[in-house]
Design a protein around this nucleic acid. Sequence first.
DNA 1: AGAAGTTTTGCACACGCTTGCAAAACAGCG
DNA 2: CGCTGTTTTGCAAGCGTGTGCAAAACTTCT
Lengths: 335, 335
Amino acid sequence: MTKTFVSADDVAKRAGVSRSAVSRTFTPGASVSDETRQRVMEAAETLGYHVNQLARGLMRSETGIVCLVVSEMDTPYRSKLVRALTHELQKAGKISMLLNADRSDGSVDAALRQTLHYRADASILLSGLPDKAITKLCLDSGQRIVLINRDDDIDGPLRINIDDKQAARVAVSAFLRAGCRRLALANSDVGTPSLMARERGFVAAAADYGLDVMVVRHGNTIYESGRHIAQSLFARLDPPDAVFCVNDLMAFGLMDGARHDCGLRIPEDVCVIGFDNIEQSAWASYELTTFSQPVDAIVENSVAWLRPGNDSESIRTIELHAPIVWRKSIARKVS
Amino acid sequence: MTKTFVSADDVAKRAGVSRSAVSRTFTPGASVSDETRQRVMEAAETLGYHVNQLARGLMRSETGIVCLVVSEMDTPYRSKLVRALTHELQKAGKISMLLNADRSDGSVDAALRQTLHYRADASILLSGLPDKAITKLCLDSGQRIVLINRDDDIDGPLRINIDDKQAARVAVSAFLRAGCRRLALANSDVGTPSLMARERGFVAAAADYGLDVMVVRHGNTIYESGRHIAQSLFARLDPPDAVFCVNDLMAFGLMDGARHDCGLRIPEDVCVIGFDNIEQSAWASYELTTFSQPVDAIVENSVAWLRPGNDSESIRTIELHAPIVWRKSIARKVS
DNA sequence: AGAAGTTTTGCACACGCTTGCAAAACAGCG
DNA sequence: CGCTGTTTTGCAAGCGTGTGCAAAACTTCT
């Protein structure tokens, strides 16, 4: 347990130069002669020197730290997003702190506090909704905030949303073209803005065609809820012939429920559409028609917003399109 | 863009005390009277003060930062582990930095360098294998290192491994009891120590019973590879009646391939066992018998190792048991 | 009240870095 | 060689915190 980090002073001594020279060597664009840079680099290499970013962050206004606030990150869609975000952030020279906001109770706020403790340059929220006071505190501290799929009305953060309404409309028309008439919607009890937007959009679009929708909400936005909903939906005397699930996980549960619990065939007896287009949608057991989350665009926009020199005043909300991906969970009814 | 963080000085001025008093208020166990603590807390609250952990890390030897190095983190098993780790680390007062080691080429080394840049207290490696020189550098800097399922022979890190050999042996005996005799093993080309241990363990255990194993390796350790392997295995004149897949994702691919591409039934025509026990194993479409990764134990041991005051000299390797989880992908052959 | 013992408090230095500023070194030129 | 203009370099002052040390304040006891 020596716990001996090598400092710029050590390197300076070894290279026979001043500490400033070392600092400048590792500061892009600073004025150092090729010769000293060479010697510094050499000394740094043999000593194993690494700039202390904590100390650097103390002087500069940027720390290079970006916080990702996310709950239930082992969900396929979330983990995909987190992977893509960290990857892109690293490419942009940033480093990501992962803040788990799992315990529901005020945990997003606690996470944002950590964000302040570590003087993060920015925070990206994938889950939950922060308290306005804390959000304001972060913004006042010069932090940038990105809200992904959280439909907040606070001014200051960048909001990236999916056009859920539009997607829901496409879902309805897809069902109708396939000859379905008894529409159902499977949602969770969670009530996230985007989930509710999908539900409302679907119901409204159906209403435009004069159709009612059986809306069922249950539990969390997970597989088991979908399966549970299948059992209650297909026990009805007027069971649906088409179900729009607010995400893929619920869709898989619903499909498995329909097939294995209720003895139904998909798409012959019932058509299903999901949302997110996670890996599993393409698996042969599901072949789920679903809407593709524009992960790349989300990431790209988030990272671009963090780059200095973009006028933070101009854009505040970005709405992205989620295109439908056709697979085999929907097909024309033979009448 | 004010970028104005409030410092301990501001709080001190507001509360009418010295800056030391503020510092001590936020240092557990320091000597402050109840009255001043009260006043400091109040001032801090109204001003929105948050201790600068970067500066604190400069003085103390601990930064509270733990780095998680992981590639392909959207894999179900990995994301589950990352979620559990961050959760437990947060409970222990640590914060996790997520380092994406996706680009294969030396990216683990680059990640470990970041680890040094931010003076992390510890690093936990879930993927890849680091260069020995860099590992040594980290250790020399007083960092603790945990290698999960990387069977490295460097001395210094804590190594947490699964008893793959034992699991493989259980798999063989399960197949034999079910009446299977033509065993196969589906592996990827990746060649991770743990994957190879499963393969070798399975082949060796089968040999003990005088049985040969058809070993097939293909691509990455993912769904598609499993499906591909199914097609090649079941095209043989002596197709297997039991397949052990080195992870669940490959098992799902293999099952879907067997069922949807080759028209086989599971478990009637072929029995399957996987590894990891991820969410999807319990889904009705798969009902996969598999080995459960002891995620909680892995996390618990990792975090315990980071706690100060455990004698870092004593334990170096922990081998954990992965119990089998019985589901329906294996059943007695009717002979 | 005064002595002795216990908290509490403020000062000042250290941590490892960046950066403005002025001195030093260098290059170009007559 | 001296003059001017351009790099390069070292000094020193910060950045926001923790902490040893001695002075100050408070307690307790005779």
